[in-house]
C-alpha cells in the first residue's frame, strides 16, 4: 500500500494531493481503459468491490434471504448462540433472528454511510468550485464559514446536531452531511485553484466562453474526480460515524435495526450472548475496510505518479 495522499482520518485534504486527474480536459479512452485495468489489477480493491456488491445485494434482498422478519421475536429461543438450528447466526436478547436483523439493519447503515457522503460531496463541490472560480467576497464568506465547522471535531458536531434534533435516520443523515461539507468544499477549492491557471481555461476565455460554460465544461470535470476519490475513502469512515450516532440512540429508534444500534442493544447481554454485539460491529469493520480499499484502489488507478511497491 502506498502513502495515503488524502486520508479520511487526517481531517484535511492536503493541497499537494489534489491533482491526480490529468488536467487537460477530458480523458482519452485508452487512458480510461488503462485506469480500469489498473484498478482491476489491485486485487485488494477488486475483492473489496466484489464484497460490497455482495453485501448490497444481500441487504436489498433481505426478505428472500431470511425466513424471519427483523422484529419477529421467538420467546423460546432468546440469546441463542450462532449455529443454532433455524437461526444460523443465533438470536438476540428478545429472541429475534440475528441474520434477519443484520440484513435489514444493513439497509439503514449503508444508507447512512453513503447518502450523506454523496450529498455533502455535491454541495461541497459546488461551494468549493464557486469559491475558487469567483474568488473575492464569495470566496471569503464561504471559506470562513467552513473554518467554523472545521473548528469542531467531526464526531462532536455530528453528535451535537443530531442530539439537538429529534432522533431518526433523517437526523443522522443531515448531521453527517453538514459536518462533511467543509471537507469536500476545501478539496474542491484547492483543486479549482490548480485548474484555473491552466492554458485551456485561458483559451476558453479568449474564445469568448461565458463563466457558466467555463465552469461547467472545463472546471467541474477536472475537479470532479478528486472529489469522487475522496468520497469513496470517506464512505468507510461515515459508516463508522453513522453507526456511532445510532449507538448513542440518535438514529433509528427501536425496534428498527441498524448495525450501530444492534451493538448498543447487545451491551446488556455482553456476558451471556457476546455474538449479539460482536457480529454487527464486525460487519461495520469489514464494510468500512472494504470502502477504504476501494478508495485506495481508485486513487492509485487515477494517479499516474503511483509506483507500486
Amino acid at each position: 500500500m502506498t502513502a495515503p495522499d488524502l486520508h479520511p482520518h487526517t481531517d484535511r485534504p492536503r493541497p499537494a494531493s489534489v491533482t491526480p486527474m490529468s488536467l487537460q480536459g477530458g480523458v482519452p479512452p485508452a487512458q480510461r481503459a488503462w485506469r480500469l485495468k489498473s484498478f482491476a489489477r489491485d486485487r485488494a480493491a477488486l475483492a473489496a468491490a466484489i464484497f460490497l456488491v455482495v453485501i448490497a445485494v444481500a441487504v436489498v434482498f433481505a426478505p428472500v434471504l431470511s425466513a424471519y422478519t427483523p422484529d419477529e421475536a421467538d420467546n423460546l429461543a432468546r440469546n441463542a448462540p450462532m449455529g443454532t438450528a433455524g437461526h444460523l447466526l443465533g438470536t438476540d436478547q428478545q429472541g429475534r433472528d440475528m441474520l434477519a436483523r443484520l440484513l435489514y439493519g444493513g439497509r439503514v447503515s449503508l444508507i447512512v454511510g453513503v447518502v450523506p457522503t454523496i450529498v455533502a460531496g455535491l454541495i461541497g463541490l459546488l461551494l468549493g468550485v464557486l469559491a475558487g472560480f469567483f474568488r473575492g467576497l464569495a470566496d471569503q464568506i464561504i471559506m470562513r464559514c467552513l473554518d467554523v465547522i472545521f473548528a469542531f471535531p467531526m464526531v462532536l458536531l455530528a453528535i451535537a446536531i443530531a442530539g439537538a434534533m429529534r432522533p431518526g435516520v433523517l437526523t443522522e443523515v443531515i448531521a453527517i452531511t453538514v459536518v462533511l461539507i467543509p471537507y469536500f468544499a476545501r478539496l474542491a477549492r484547492t483543486a479549482t485553484d490548480g485548474v484555473m491557471p491552466m492554458p485551456f481555461i485561458e483559451a476558453a476565455r479568449a474564445a469568448g466562453g461565458s463563466s457558466f460554460t467555463i465552469l461547467t465544461r472545463y472546471v467541474l470535470p477536472n475537479v470532479f474526480s478528486p472529489v469522487v476519490v475522496y468520497a469513496t475513502t470517506l464512505m468507510g469512515l461515515m459508516i463508522v460515524v453513522g453507526s456511532g450516532l445510532s449507538f448513542l440512540g440518535l438514529g433509528v429508534q427501536p425496534p428498527t435495526a441498524d448495525w450501530g444500534a444492534m451493538v448498543a442493544d447487545g451491551r446488556v447481554v455482553l456476558r451471556k450472548a457476546p455474538h449479539v454485539t460482536v457480529l454487527p460491529g464486525l460487519l461495520i469493520l469489514v464494510v468500512s475496510l472494504a470502502f477504504n480499499f476501494i478508495g485506495d484502489g481508485i486513487r492509485d488507478a487515477l494517479d499516474p505518479r503511483t509506483i507500486r511497491r
Partner: peptide, 16 residues
C-alpha cells in the same frame, strides 16, 4: 483493521 473498527465496538470487544 484497528483503524477501520468502530471505537465503541472495539471497546466492548476489549471489555469482553
Amino acid at each position: 483493521m484497528a483503524g477501520s473498527a468502530p471505537p465503541f465496538w472495539l471497546g466492548l470487544v476489549l471489555v469482553l
